[in-house]
């Protein structure tokens, strides 16, 4: 196959993934409730819009500890004892989840909706 064919393929992949990627990551978080999961299980949830005073919440995972800083409409991982502390660098939770991989910890905003309402 000619080289320029490959160039086109790779260029297309780059363009598409870049656009999709940026769109996905700049989405505004929908909903007010932050959910904290360890190993896929919900360990903590908080309605960020109802938070008055900022506070720290410690999550003890079987793999290590993370400290969450929770304020009104804001949540971030403030500290962790994982090797690279990449989770701390992720900053505030925006559209995409906060992750501490070594600790299997994920913080995400979930939509507030329900599948049906009982009344």
């Amino acid at each position: 196959m000619k080289t320029w064919v490959w160039v086109v393929i790779v260029a297309v992949i780059l363009a598409v993934s870049l656009t999709v990627g940026v769109v996905l990551l700049t989405r505004q978080p929908q909903g007010n409730v932050a959910y904290v999961y360890v190993d896929g299980e919900l360990v903590y949830q908080v309605d960020l819009s109802k938070v008055d005073q900022p506070y720290l919440y410690t999550v003890n995972t079987p793999y290590g500890t993370n400290v969450l800083e929770i304020a009104k409409d804001s949540i971030r991982i403030a500290d962790a004892d994982c090797p690279h502390k990449e989770c701390v660098e992720q900053g505030r939770l925006k559209g995409s989840p906060l992750v501490c991989l070594p600790h299997r910890l994920v913080v995400k905003i979930a939509e507030d909706d329900a599948d049906s309402v009982s009344r």
Binding site: V10, I13, L14, V16, S17, L18, V20, G21, V22, L24, L25, Y37, D39, G40, E41, G95, S96, P97, V99, L101, R104, L105, V106, K108
Partner: peptide, 27 residues
């Protein structure tokens, strides 16, 4: 692997950016 370890499929939202980054650094 990240999705499997954290059991959160929501992480797949990072895939496109990683693909793009991969293309650049890989090239």
């Amino acid at each position: 692997v990240a999705i499997a370890l954290t059991r959160t499929t929501g992480l797949v939202v990072y895939l496109p950016v990683l693909v793009a980054a991969g293309v650049i650094t890989g090239t």
